[in-house]
Simulated assay, not measured.
Amino acid sequence: MSEKTKEGTSWTQIREEVLRRINERIWQPGEIIPNESELAEEFHCARTTVNRALRELATSGIVTRKRKAGTRVAVNPPHKAILTIPIIREEVEAKGAFYRQNLLIRENRSLPAFLAGAFRVGDDTPLLYTETVHFYDNQPFIYEERYTSLDAVPDFEAADLEKVTANEWLVQNAPYSGGDASFFAVSADAKLARAFDIPIGGALFATERNTWFAEKPITHVRLVYHPGYRMRTSF
């Protein structure tokens, strides 16, 4: 990202740019960074957008914030892995591939009993269930199954998920304060075998992720990746 960004910059883009400048030592440990008004002017956005980005970084321990003292780069940031939820479209396009999605199911649905221990929502919590296939150059890339709490993100119910995927909409509009993820192998059932055009029982890589804000569950998603997928991360 350039020093000057396009109008309409999202809080997630600001967060990533601030993090880049910190990681590349443009802003040194202990240094006070520009205030919210200055950053809002640079990024051509509202101060509230900058505030959200800095709050997220403060929650992660990357910066420290004190009233009337400004925001300072943490001298001793926590030594832990920070999981950034990727936008699948951007992941595909970054590799020079063509991206598209196929929204298979979008409906209000109760949480199945087998997920009750993983996604702790009340029995009366309204949930929107979606199933989406993400494509990489017209080849199935990820099969996504998701439950989203409309108590946590009521605007999600009106989102045009044919235009913007559930993954992208939630990353851009539903900040989270915590989450957990698991990584495992699955054997393709009939649905996955059909989606990826592989034999039933074929080995696939999968992840499950929960996010929440202030202990309020936001979404539970299961992502199953195409055969041979390898996940790489840095820390």
Rank of each mutant, 00 (worst) to 15 (best):
G179M: 05
W212S: 13
R109L: 14
P112K: 14
L104R: 11
F183H: 13
I198N: 02
E24F: 09
V121L: 02
T219V: 14
N173D: 10
P175D: 05
E56K: 08
T125R: 06
G96E: 08
L223W: 04
N51D: 03
S110R: 13
F235D: 07
T12N: 05
S187A: 11
T84M: 12
L127G: 02
V186C: 03
V92R: 00
I26G: 02
G30L: 05
Y229A: 15
Y229L: 07
T12W: 09
P126D: 06
H79E: 12
D123C: 04
T71E: 03
N35I: 01
K216T: 14
P217H: 05
Y176H: 15
A214P: 00
F98V: 15
S110W: 06
L223R: 12
P199L: 02
Y143A: 14
K66W: 03
E93G: 05
T12S: 06
Q101M: 14
S187Y: 09
N173K: 10
I105Y: 11
R194P: 00
L223A: 08
F213D: 10
L57I: 04
E31H: 10
L115P: 00
D160P: 04
A158R: 09
A116Y: 10
V92H: 02
A58V: 08
D123V: 07
S177I: 04
V133I: 15
V164T: 15
H226G: 05
T207N: 08
I32M: 14
S177G: 14
N167Y: 03
A159E: 04
M1Y: 06
R120F: 01
R15V: 01
G178D: 14
I26R: 12
S177R: 06
H226D: 13
W27D: 06
K6S: 14
A113N: 10
E144A: 15
C45V: 12
K80W: 03
W11T: 02
E38M: 10
R232S: 11
K216S: 10
L83A: 06
E131M: 11
V50L: 03
K95A: 15
H134W: 03
S37K: 12
R109C: 05
A166M: 06
L104A: 06
T233A: 13
R109P: 07
P112L: 11
V121A: 03
D197Y: 01
